[in-house]
Simulated assay, not measured.
Amino acid sequence: MVKSIWEASNDEYMLQPLTDEIIKKAEELFNVTLPNSYIAILKQQNGGQPICNAHPSPVPTVWGETFVIVEHIKGIGAGNGILENDYYIKEWELPEGLILFNGDGHTWLAFDYRDATSAPPIVYVDVDLEQTIQIADSFEEFLTNLYLENEEFDFGEMEVKVYSKQEFETFIQEDNVDELIDAISELAQSDVDLKWFGNQLLTLSNYHDKNVRRMVANNVWSFLTHQLHEEILHTLIENFKNDVDSDVRMYAELALEKVNYSFEQLKEDVYNGERISLAFQDKLYHVIEDSNQWHLADYETDTQQSFDSADELLEKSRIDGKSLQEGWSRIKKAY
């Protein structure tokens, strides 16, 4: 029996229980053999937060002089699992042949299948520094070397830029592409004046630089489809659809999928054990399956409605006093 590496908690990376069919699907998709040690831990729990949160690094990284932080390990599945790998490889312009099992966009941990179809080494990738480091010869060695980093990582040491309206508009006037790319992402995830920001994004959706247009489209799809005014959102999507860049057009399709997310699609995702985030007005709700119970969680008030089956959740859960189906016209898919 393999000793469990997992924290006793439920988080966004914990997927539905692993089956042989899901493993087969993944290996056929990537045309590789996944490590036995990876399969073994996922049969205990299909992704999540490990007890040990760090791994040694042979060179300094943004995390520290001698280590990288391991906040989660992705399981096999859609959403927050490795089956979304191709999307992230394309979005962050990472090398083909990597299968990402940890990361947030700027740094990643990955199985390196560039020169192998089985028994891959493990690499750490820093996108911003264009740095790729092999940190373990195998996933088994990676697991063996995990340890608990007791010193809390000081995120205050990381520079987090806060952008004002005036600064952002100046970046546009001065054609400051690098600052615009950083500011778009930061503002999209902050408490920003959405009417003002939406109008700025409309301007930038016709910008001459494709990387700026890609960043606009990416962040609209990732964070803003449930927040922007409908008229602005639909105009943005039309601009994305007509863009000469294929990546921008792809984000238009992904955004439309969110906008047109139906109650029937919700039912299918709930039955498949997917974690779904829904928005109603300014509040977020999360549909979660855990330990054979289904929950509609409201993290703002730290409350949840719990049910013994997916059907019961779909029928009996309430948002603003109405069932999900009754109130669906006012509910949006968030993430």
Rank of each mutant, 00 (worst) to 15 (best):
I5R: 04
A8I: 13
S9V: 15
N10D: 11
Y13I: 05
L18F: 04
I23F: 06
K24S: 15
E28N: 10
Y38R: 03
Q44D: 13
N46L: 06
G48P: 02
Q49E: 11
V59C: 08
T61A: 05
V62A: 11
W63N: 02
G75V: 07
I76V: 09
L83P: 01
L83R: 01
N85G: 06
N85H: 09
K90F: 13
P95G: 10
I99T: 04
I99V: 11
L100D: 04
H106N: 12
W108G: 01
F111G: 01
T117N: 13
I122V: 15
Y124R: 01
Y124D: 01
V125G: 01
E141S: 08
E151H: 07
E152A: 10
E157K: 12
M158S: 09
V160W: 08
S164D: 09
I184G: 00
S185P: 02
S185N: 13
Q189E: 07
Q189A: 10
D191K: 15
N199G: 08
N199P: 05
T203M: 06
S205Q: 03
Y207H: 11
H208I: 13
V212H: 00
A217R: 00
W221R: 04
F223Q: 13
I232D: 01
E238N: 07
V244F: 08
S246W: 03
R249S: 03
A252T: 01
E253I: 10
V259E: 00
S262I: 10
S262Q: 06
E264Q: 14
L266T: 03
L266A: 03
L278P: 00
A279V: 09
D282P: 03
S291D: 15
A297N: 09
S309P: 07
L313N: 02
I319H: 01
K322M: 14
S323M: 08
G327M: 12
W328I: 12
K332M: 12
